[in-house]
């Protein structure tokens, strides 16, 4: 099995480093997985197995936590992740039209990654920026009061 490497990081080495920092208490599992997710974009099955060994937990216990939380992914995602808020406040402010424009501009549907691996499109529950709905988040950038006709312009800012 080849060792997973991203951005020059070796997954096993990274996990060992993280365990050194955090220790092997069960309470540290989620903080560790958040850091893995941030560094690699997702938590691979290789990462889950490595965590299971080092934290002395059954693999399924780690998998079940990784799949429960929305901010952790067990599947690779595109270079940029778009999260669109689908909660009621954004919906009432005209969210559906923006959502349709977004799908049309990207040519993908919710939960899909574009073929060139550039975009992953996700819907999300409230992001706590309801005063400026409809809201969409690309990577860490929050866009508020989005109008359908602005979508293309916003997307063009990303390489």
């Amino acid at each position: 099995m080849s060792v997973e490497v991203k951005n020059g990081l070796d997954i096993k080495k990274t996990i060992r480093e993280l365990i050194k920092q955090h220790g092997t208490e069960r309470a540290e599992l989620i903080p560790i997985m958040q850091k893995i997710n941030a560094a690699f974009g997702y938590i691979s099955s290789e990462a889950i197995e490595e965590l299971a060994i080092l934290m002395n937990l059954p693999t399924n216990q780690i998998f079940t936590v990784a799949t429960f939380y929305r901010m952790l992914s067990t599947e690779p995602r595109g270079k940029h992740v778009i999260q669109f808020c689908e909660s009621a406040p954004c919906h009432v402010a005209g969210g559906r039209q923006v959502w349709l424009a977004l799908q049309e501009a990207l040519g993908i549907k919710s939960g899909q990654t574009s073929q060139d691996n550039k975009w992953t499109l996700l819907t999300t529950s409230c992001l706590g920026a309801c005063g400026i709905g409809p809201v969409l988040v690309i990577d860490q950038d929050i866009y508020g009061n989005v109008q359908p006709q602005q979508v293309k312009n916003i997307l063009s800012r990303y390489e």
Binding site: R26, A27, L29, T64, Y69, R70, M71, S125
Partner: peptide
């Protein structure tokens, strides 16, 4: 890590303990 249910106090406690 992103779960609405964790606002429920016992779910929040489970989450601090590193569980679902």
């Amino acid at each position: 890590a992103g779960a609405y249910i964790c606002g429920e106090e016992t779910a929040l406690i489970e989450s601090i303990e590193g569980k679902r």
